[in-house]
């Protein structure tokens, strides 16, 4: 089936089977590799993308569903230079192995877009769907709160 989708500002005309999941199409047909395959059932959050500005699990979306929509991944967020949030992730050691990091940056970006002054609880809520086995989350929470204080996105 043919459909059209915008990925990080670029238009893509894609031919995919209805059974093809968006995550796989992004990685294999579009070549965007930051959404990761972690559990393939919506539990871990490492496949998170922004779909029309909202985080969704790309492992639980059929590719054909996104016809006409816009997708942003971390490659798009940092294309013109890393965002202040991304810089703060680096300076706060808010990652270790880095596998879940692109998804977590997106979840935090969505939060700060809608709530520029989140509480610690708000940040935990926004990140609760992104599993990280390395960091214990504390440095991530601190990075997001620091970005909020910095008035950044």
């Amino acid at each position: 089936m043919e459909f059209t989708v915008k990925v990080n500002g670029e238009r893509w005309d894609i031919d995919a089977a209805p059974a093809d999941v968006l995550l796989d199409v992004l990685r294999e047909k579009i070549g965007v590799k930051s959404p990761k395959i972690g559990c393939e059932r919506g539990d871990c959050g490492s496949c998170t993308i922004l779909l029309d500005g909202k985080t969704v699990r790309s492992c639980l979306v059929l590719a054909v569903e996104v016809d006409g929509q816009e997708i942003t991944t971390v490659e798009g967020i940092g294309y013109e230079g890393l965002s202040q949030l991304q810089d703060l992730f680096i300076s706060n050691n808010a990652f270790q192995c880095g596998f879940c990091a692109p998804a977590i940056v997106l979840s935090a970006t969505e939060l700060l877009d809608s709530n520029p002054n989140p509480t610690r609880h708000d940040v935990q809520e926004a990140l609760a769907g992104n599993l990280c086995r390395c960091t214990g989350y504390e440095p991530i929470i601190e990075a997001v709160l620091a970005a909020a204080e910095g008035g950044a996105k």
């Binding site: 590799k33 490659e75 940092g78 680096i90 880095g98 692109p102």
Partner: peptide, 14 residues
């Protein structure tokens, strides 16, 4: 850091 936060970091599946 930049590799991992920009999405550049390559894992085997990538």
């Amino acid at each position: 850091g930049v590799d991992k936060i920009s999405g550049a970091a390559e894992f085997v599946d990538d």
